[in-house]
């Protein structure tokens, strides 16, 4: 069992994959010792390219490597990668369908001391609205390794978003999505860091109301797995999406693009949230993602005994 920053899980696992895959190279925007790429630099110095504080150049460079047969993995903070180099991702990578893998560490709205400039709370929105892009959002070191493996196997662009907070090992079955718990008709659908919050909500519900709320952990979030939609349509009446992202433009929004029969409520960051500096617990307590808020909301919404939504 591990508890580690998923950026480190990513970097370490990638360096293992590189043992048997000579096409992989890593490009870094001067953040390797924070974003996990350092493990590659230490093991495969000649396959690690420092690009400096020049994200736009780095992303287009990666596209150049990709068309020459390499599998470039580009590392930076999610904010700088997705926002600073967005046109390069859109044009050099996505529109060309270049086999470039993008690693955005420090994703989400919990930035620690870093604050708003370093937050990435609409990266899912931006990366899901360009062609050919896949998005992965792991919640554990093992999820991360699974996602990195999938991304590397896939021939085409892909983006993985990794939170700043350390995450613990999970015992669930690895894959694009899975029930963390047994199947329930009221379920939280979550991804990444928000799994921590989902677990708190589930526990509170159990303790306060003696009700079971199941949790689905989604790792492959774009495109939304078709069998997840089928599962929700077949077995779930009420979905609560919890995500470390703008609530209006993230996983919930992606789910809603499909023909879903169930009701959906969603929790995440509001558009005017600016991720001021602060400790994870302090921010959580005062935000829309406060587990108690979510628990109360669910309780008010769903009459469990009668299995219907109160309003």
């Amino acid at each position: 069992m591990r508890s580690e920053k998923l950026a480190n899980s990513c970097g370490k696992y990638l360096s293992q994959l590189m043992d048997n895959d000579s096409a992989i190279i890593v490009l870094d925007g001067d953040l390797a010792d924070s974003n996990g790429a350092i493990y590659v630099q230490e093991k495969y110095e000649n396959r690690f390219i420092m690009c400096g504080i020049a994200e736009q150049c780095m992303v287009s460079m990666a596209a150049g490597f990709a068309v020459e047969g390499y599998t470039p993995w580009v590392f930076s903070f999610a904010s700088f990668l997705c926002y600073r180099a967005y046109d390069q991702i859109r044009v050099s990578v996505a529109q060309c369908n270049a086999n470039v893998k993008l690693v955005g560490s420090h994703a989400g709205g919990f930035t620690g001391r870093n604050g708003k400039t370093h937050s990435a709370i609409n990266d899912i929105a931006m990366m899901s609205s360009i062609p050919n892009m896949r998005i992965y959002s792991p919640a554990s070191p093992e999820d991360t390794e699974w996602a990195v493996g999938e991304m590397n196997k896939h021939d085409g662009p892909a983006y993985i978003r990794l939170p700043r907070e350390a995450m613990s090992s999970g015992t669930w079955k690895l894959g694009s999505w899975t029930w963390i718990t047994k199947r329930t008709s009221v379920a939280i659908v979550t991804t990444g860091l928000a799994l921590k919050i989902a677990n708190q909500v589930r526990e509170q519900f159990k303790n306060l109301f003696d009700e079971e709320i199941g949790i689905i952990n989604t790792v492959a979030i774009h495109p939304v797995p078709q069998d997840l939609i089928e599962e929700l349509n077949n077995f779930v009446d009420y979905v609560i999406v919890i995500e470390d992202h703008l609530t209006s433009h993230g996983l919930a929004a992606l789910l809603k693009c499909h023909q879903l029969k169930c009701k959906i409520d969603q929790f995440g960051w509001p558009i005017d949230y600016m991720a001021d500096s602060g400790d994870y617990e302090d921010i959580l307590k005062h935000s829309e993602l406060n587990p108690e808020k979510i628990t109360t909301h669910i309780k008010n919404r769903y009459a469990f005994n009668d299995n219907y939504l109160a309003r």
């Binding site: 736009q56 460079m61 490597f65």
Partner: peptide
Amino acid sequence: QGLSVGIGMAM
């Protein structure tokens, strides 16, 4: 963007 792509190719 082209010069950056060219760097990747050249490398």
